[in-house]
C-alpha cells in the first residue's frame, strides 16, 4: 500500500509569546521563562511548531498553610514556615518558576500590610533566580493595595500579577503598566468572557505580550471537563487567528486539586478510593495532564511528586518526531 496521507490542519494563528522575569533593566532574575508560540494543538509536532515547552510553577504561600492536606504538609516539611526557603526548595525540586500567594494579607488570615507583602516578595526574589507569579489574597480592595505596592517595589522584574478579573483589573493593570510587569487575567470558564477581559485590558494599553489568561480551573471530578473544553475552544480560536484568544494559559491545578475531599481526607472514605497518599498525588497529576492536553502553558502545582511527574510528562511530550 502507498504511504498514508496524514490530515494536517493549516492554522493561521499562533499563541502569543510571553516572557516572565527579567535579567536586566531592573530585573534581577538569573533566568527567564518564555511560554507560547505554538502554531498547532498541544504536542502535535507533525503539524506545527511548539517552540516553548509548557512549564511548571510551584505554589508557595507566605504563611504556613496549616489547613492544607496532611499529605502535602508532610511532603513539604518545615520549609512551609518560610516562603523564601520554601521557594528555594521547590526550585531545587525542578520548578521552572514560583507562584507566590500573599495569603496572610487577607483580612481573615492575619491582614498583614502591603509593606509586609513587599518584604515577602523581596525575600523570595532574593532566594531564587526564577521568575515569580504573585497572587494577592483574592479580596478586591486588598488585592489592589498589596499588588500595587509589590509592583512599585519590584519595578522591571516582569512579575506576573494575579489576578485581574472583570470587576477588578484597572488598578492592577495600571500597576503592571507603570512598572514593567505582566498580569494574569482570570475569567469564569467562558470563552467570550475571556476574550472580553483581554480586550478591556489591552485597551488600557498593556501590550498583549504581557498578558496570561487563566480560564479558571476545575479539578478531576470537580468540573475539569468544563475547563478542558473552554481551553480547547480558546486554543482552537487562537490557532484560527482570533487575536484576543492567543494569550498563553495558566491553570491553578494544585489549589483546585488539593481542595477536594479525595486529596484531603485519609480516613472514613470508601475503600475503593484506594491508598490516600497515592490518590492525592494522582489526583493532581491527572488534573494537570488533562489540562496539558487542552493547551495549558503554565501549570501551578503543589506536591513535589507532581512537579516531578508533570515535568517528566512535558519532557516526553516535547520529544517531537
Amino acid at each position: 500500500m502507498t504511504e498514508l496521507e496524514i490530515p494536517v490542519e493549516k492554522w493561521s494563528g499562533a499563541v502569543r509569546l510571553v516572557t516572565l522575569g527579567a535579567t536586566g533593566d531592573g530585573g534581577t532574575r538569573t533566568s527567564t521563562v518564555t511560554v507560547g508560540g505554538e502554531t498547532t494543538l498541544p504536542f502535535l509536532h507533525f503539524e506545527g511548531q511548539i517552540p516553548n515547552a509548557p512549564v511548571v510553577a510551584a505554589e508557595v504561600v507566605d504563611m504556613h498553610p496549616a489547613d492544607w492536606s496532611p499529605a502535602l504538609l508532610e511532603a513539604l516539611g518545615d520549609d512551609t514556615r518560610d516562603p523564601a526557603a520554601w521557594a528555594r526548595k521547590m526550585v531545587g525540586l525542578g520548578a521552572d518558576l514560583i507562584s507566590l500567594k500573599l495569603r496572610s494579607t487577607h483580612p481573615d488570615q492575619g491582614d498583614r500590610s502591603a509593606a509586609d507583602a513587599v518584604a515577602t516578595v523581596k525575600s523570595v526574589l532574593a532566594a531564587v533566580g526564577v521568575p515569580l507569579i504573585v497572587y494577592g489574597p483574592g479580596v478586591v480592595d486588598k488585592d489592589n493595595e498589596v499588588l500595587v505596592a509589590v509592583a512599585d517595589a519590584t519595578k522591571g522584574e516582569r512579575l506576573a500579577l494575579a489576578t485581574c478579573e472583570d470587576k477588578n483589573y484597572r488598578t492592577i493593570v495600571a500597576a503592571a503598566l507603570g512598572n514593567g510587569h505582566l498580569i494574569v487575567a482570570q475569567t469564569p470558564i467562558d470563552v467570550n468572557l475571556a476574550k472580553q477581559l483581554n480586550i478591556l485590558i489591552s485597551d488600557m494599553g498593556l501590550s498583549l505580550d504581557r498578558m496570561l489568561m487563566d480560564p479558571t480551573t476545575g479539578a478531576v471530578g470537580y468540573g475539569v471537563e468544563y475547563t478542558y473544553s473552554v481551553m480547547e475552544r480558546l486554543r482552537l480560536a487562537a490557532l484560527m487567528g482570533d487575536g484576543m484568544t492567543q494569550q498563553p494559559m495558566i491553570c491553578s491545578v494544585g489549589e483546585e486539586s488539593w481542595r477536594q475531599k479525595e486529596s484531603r481526607v485519609a480516613d472514613g472514605v470508601p475503600e475503593s478510593w484506594g491508598e490516600y497518599a497515592t490518590r492525592a498525588v494522582v489526583w493532581e497529576v491527572t488534573t494537570a495532564t488533562a489540562l496539558l492536553h487542552a493547551g495549558a502553558d503554565i501549570l501551578v502545582v503543589r506536591h513535589p511528586r507532581s512537579i516531578a511527574q508533570v515535568q517528566r510528562s512535558i519532557a516526553a511530550l516535547m520529544k517531537g518526531v
Binding site: V220, V224, G274, E275, T278, R279, V282, W283, T286, A290
Partner: peptide
C-alpha cells in the same frame, strides 16, 4: 490493580 489510580481515572 491500584484503586487510588483507578478511582481518579474513572472520574476523569
Amino acid at each position: 490493580f491500584e484503586p487510588a489510580l483507578i478511582y481518579a481515572l474513572m472520574t476523569l
